[in-house]
Design a protein around this nucleic acid. Sequence first.
DNA 1: ATAAATTACTACCTCAGTATAGCATTTGCA
DNA 2: TGCAAATGCTATACTGAGGTAGTAATTTAT
Lengths: 137, 137
Amino acid sequence: MKLSKTSGYTIRLLSYMINSDLQVFQAGFLSEKLRIPDKYLRKILTDLSKSGFIKSIRGREGGYVFAKNANKITLWCVIDSIENINNYTGCVLGFGECSEENPCSLHYEYLPVREKLLNFLKTTTIADLKNENIGKF
Amino acid sequence: MKLSKTSGYTIRLLSYMINSDLQVFQAGFLSEKLRIPDKYLRKILTDLSKSGFIKSIRGREGGYVFAKNANKITLWCVIDSIENINNYTGCVLGFGECSEENPCSLHYEYLPVREKLLNFLKTTTIADLKNENIGKF
DNA sequence: ATAAATTACTACCTCAGTATAGCATTTGCA
DNA sequence: TGCAAATGCTATACTGAGGTAGTAATTTAT
């Protein structure tokens, strides 16, 4: 019931970026600041770039910048680009098909919890994480 | 954000048992009814037995029976016996320490979601899953 | 007693997520 | 022009969850 490690890394990364005054971010700098394994963070950055959330600038003085406004980047779409989103929308007991018509034994009890979770993921954006009080990334 | 596969199997198993008129359940019978890999379900049954939720009866005519009243078995304590419960209580971004005093960038936004989830897990019992309308295990 | 039906134990296999290593490519600055 | 600083790519290793296989131990029906 928690984000995958990669999703966690990614949201830490993006929230660090939105809370910084810098415009361009280098992988080495970020992995040091965020204490995320260097090579792994580089992979995440490349993937985020391919997904269109950030843009890469190659060559000397290069790095990464936001490719779209942070208030348009929801947790939902970030996670969707990393994990199987069915982990969040699917049946809590793991059934392939689980609906009002054909519910699992936890279906109705879990319904309001899922609603709250999905609403959180779909409405929270990276821009919402801009907060002067956070010193932890 | 879903239960581990093993936790899902386990809750399906217990909800099947509470919804059945039988008193004693054999592993082979259960794996067939629940379509859970036979050998794996046997392991789950042994673990549940060691955890004290069910009792095993060895030998011919043996099987498993509830070892405690199903209304005393919460989803929470079942999951806690299977997974690292920190997956549910811990920081959503994966920080070791994350609290009101030292929050992560998602801490306050995620708080009400976690509350709802934990309340659900801690208050829902296997007995609550007794329901005539469910034909799916 | 013995055979059959059942659980218990130990060891191994597989796969996806996580992490590492090395080299290729691009680009700006001296 | 060439070196340095950055990203891009490919291949490999590690780890834990999930799953499989075979044998041992226990108990009851006959």
